[in-house]
Design a binder for these strands. Structure first.
Lengths: 218, 218
DNA sequence: TAGATTGTTAATCGATTAACAATC
DNA sequence: TAGATTGTTAATCGATTAACAATC
């Protein structure tokens, strides 16, 4: 049991998908090796950071040569668990929910939506990006029956906790939460919360600071 | 010139929109004051972190009482520049682009889409969530003419840099980049890059770690 | 008054960056 | 061989957490 029980750093994990995209592209172009230096340039980061990040996947490179492209793709996908298909449900077929169902990149990350759920009778029975929309009433039974482990939550804030309770009861293990609600779940259920507004906050502040700097210097 | 030239920490800035949502809700419910402790409970964080974060907006509270709800909303919105309307264009009317145009929360953050742009003749002339879709050919002239400062970029990766070059030439100052491309821009243009996959990477890793822990202990 | 909460200063923790020997 | 690149160890930087006096 040589398990290195070390929790990987969140910033590193978050950068891995970008590295994966770059390396897959290089693989597609027929490259055999890739250096941390090259990835760094592509990302606008320092090469030392790339090496540190890649180290958590267990890949090793060769001085002067770099990392084997194929081995690196494997290592990242294995580390993230993105090598065999994960079935998931999406709950809340609004604008954002529909967009996520159609987001191509998730397929290449082995995230597979088997069904979507909504309360709106006009949506139920329809197909969105080829995925059937089922009645919310059947959510618990379907999730349990098919043993779905992952749910993407794109319902209105008011419904978020109620839907979550159903999902947890049905045996869900991970919730990707796009609502701005802090979900209460038993601690064997993992929740990843996304906040679309936080990126806009960053942009706003960056622009404001630049503005001030310009005004000051002129 | 008593300008405290101190760059606010990114994690703090990113949390502010969530605080704003909570405090606005409390305001709506008629509360006069709110404590850091309460916000902390609502967010699942420590109260000291809330106090530290709020401090960057310049708000001050009163011991035992907390922060004035109205003053706090003001302070956060002022700090983020979310108090008067910012006109923006969206480029790339795909699934994600359409979803962002319809995302209600942005309106309350004073982000206003005046037009969208696409190359697809079937989309041009249509309206999406009430916003007209114009031809990409007119992008440069429209952005320049109306003095638009902010662009949301949701085009395919292959087009990202070319569109960016047009935007920069037209005088754009901030780009909210949803493509997985590191954009090259002159350094007076701010770019905020979003990576939807990074959240899924986090969820995947959290679930994998939990899995191992469970297996180990059983 | 008593005690909850703020704001400040200090301590800890974790992530990034630097330095450099090993090596392909 | 020469020099670019890796992986490791140490240093720096920044964010979070702790402690606590001030005070409403």
């Amino acid at each position: 049991m040589k398990t290195k029980r070390k929790i990987p750093s969140a910033p590193s994990v978050r950068r891995l998908p970008s590295y994966l995209t770059i390396v897959k592209q290089l693989q597609h172009e027929g490259n055999e090796h890739v250096s941390g230096t090259l990835i760094a340039r592509e990302m606008g980061l320092e090469s030392i950071q790339i090496r540190k990040d890649l180290a958590i996947t267990g890949i090793t490179g060769k001085p002067r040569i770099g990392y084997p492209v194929e081995g690196l793709v494997d290592a990242i996908e294995r580390f993230l668990g993105w090598y065999d298909v994960q079935d998931a449900v999406l709950v809340g077929v609004g604008n954002l929910g529909s967009a996520l169902m159609g987001y191509r990149e998730f397929q290449s990350h082995c995230l597979n939506f088997v069904a979507a759920f909504d309360t709106d009778p006009r949506k139920i029975g329809a197909r969105v990006h080829g995925i059937y929309v089922l009645s919310m009433e059947t959510l618990e039974i379907e999730v349990r029956q098919w043993g779905i482990k992952i749910a993407v939550l794109t319902v209105p804030a008011e419904e978020a906790q109620a839907v979550t309770d159903i999902l947890v009861r049905a045996g869900i293990e991970g919730i990707w939460n796009f609502t701005n609600v802090k979900l209460k779940v038993s601690d064997n259920v993992m929740v990843q919360r996304e906040d679309l507004s936080s990126g806009y906050a960053m942009l706003s502040v960056m622009m404001k600071i630049k503005d001030k700097t310009v005004k000051k210097s002129s």
